Simulated scan of single mutants.
Amino acid sequence: MPAVMTVNGFEPGEDGGGPAECDGKYHSDDDMLVALSTGWYQGGVRCFRMIRITSAGTGRSVEAMVVDECDSRRGCKNNIVDTSKAVWKALGLDTNVGEETVTWSDA
């Protein structure tokens, strides 16, 4: 599925907002984590499932666990894979870029 990957903070006080939607907890940015746009999040159906993310720029792929929703009713676009800094690092990408073209699928 084509998507735009953005950087999300999953720790307290970061730009990710409150705790993760799947479990009501904060998580480490060092873990391979993702928040999916509302449609892809499917009301929590994908919680704690792994997805495979492939960077169009580097060609690298990683797996990350869905722990949160990027709420499309509150400004998140419908094509967003919002990931932790660990995912960016594993894909060989610079988080300062802010957005990266990716594809994703259920792992």
Score class of each variant (00 low, 15 high):
V87F: 05
L93D: 13
V34C: 14
T101P: 00
D30R: 14
A35K: 02
T95F: 03
D30F: 02
G57Y: 00
V102F: 01
D106M: 13
V67Q: 06
E21D: 06
E100I: 03
G43Y: 02
W88D: 05
E100Y: 02
G39R: 03
F10R: 00
A107F: 02
R60P: 14
Q42G: 10
F48V: 03
Y41A: 08
V34M: 14
D31V: 10
V34K: 08
P2W: 01
V66C: 15
K89H: 08
I53S: 06
L36E: 06
E69M: 15
D23V: 09
S28T: 12
D29G: 02
G44E: 04
M65K: 15
P19A: 13
R73P: 00
S72R: 06
A86C: 11
G13S: 08
N8T: 13
D31Q: 13
I80S: 11
G92F: 06
P2H: 00
G92T: 08
I80M: 10
Q42L: 05
G92W: 05
G18E: 07
V34W: 01
T83V: 12
R46Y: 03
V7H: 09
M65N: 11
G24S: 10
P19G: 03
G13C: 07
P2S: 13
C47R: 07
D68S: 10
R74F: 11
K85H: 09
C76K: 03
T83C: 09
S84D: 13
A20D: 13
S84Q: 12
K77A: 15
R60N: 15
C76M: 07
V45T: 15
T103R: 05
G24W: 03
K77P: 15
T54P: 04
C70R: 10
D31M: 12
A3G: 14
R52Q: 14
G98H: 02
S72E: 12
D94V: 08
I51W: 01
S72A: 03
T103I: 04
Y41L: 05
D82I: 02
N79C: 10
A107K: 07
